[in-house]
């Protein structure tokens, strides 16, 4: 059965629908959030220009990830002097691995994480959020609260670790419940 060609208004709808998941994919390859924002911007322009290559809406997420991957590698080459980025070989390995994650996997993880966040105290949750608001957030928060960055990092690190454990446990329970 033939499908109508995908036009630019379809593109906007598809991009908006998958943008969060594309951002997650890009984060796996890039060292910080500003880099993720930049790569997503560049990738969206490339997608817009190459929209004619996309045959089916169902293929959008896979197709878009290929473009994000290419743009992330390009950004890495441009930042080759930056010592805080991974090697190209490592990024390729991570991208290969990340391509297998589906939109449904991410949806489930988000739901589980929300449940785990709700189990935390308000102050603990706010600390976790404050640290992830922007890069260097831990250092800024430490200065604002007159603590050393290292002591605050350890506290937030423990909270993030307990969140990870909670998510791991809940995901395992869900898997067992669904056989």
């Amino acid at each position: 059965m033939s499908q109508d060609p995908i036009d630019q208004s379809d593109f906007m709808r598809l991009f908006v629908r998958h943008e969060r998941d594309l951002r997650v994919f890009a984060r796996g390859m890039l060292p910080n959030w500003p880099a993720v924002d930049d790569v997503l911007q560049e990738a969206s322009v490339v997608m817009w220009k190459k929209l004619h290559q996309l045959e089916k809406e169902e293929d959008f997420f896979t197709w878009a990830r290929v473009i994000v991957r290419y743009e992330a590698l390009r950004a890495r080459r441009n930042a080759a002097r930056d010592r805080l980025v991974f090697s190209e070989e490592t990024l390729e390995l991570l991208a290969d691995e990340a391509m297998s994650t589906t939109g449904d996997d991410l949806k489930q993880e988000r739901a589980v994480l929300n449940g785990c966040l709700m189990k935390m105290g308000d102050e603990q949750r706010e600390l976790v959020f404050a640290a992830s608001m922007r890069d260097g957030g831990v250092k800024e928060l430490a200065e604002a609260t007159n603590r050393t960055a290292n002591s605050l990092y350890k506290l937030i690190g423990r909270l993030r670790a307990s969140l990870r454990e909670c998510v791991k446990r809940e995901m395992k329970t869900r898997e067992q419940a669904h056989g």
């Binding site: 991410l106 976790v128 990870r164």
Partner: peptide
Amino acid sequence: ATRMDSHIRERS
């Protein structure tokens, strides 16, 4: 871990 980090950021 990067997916968790992304989800936490979305929520924050």
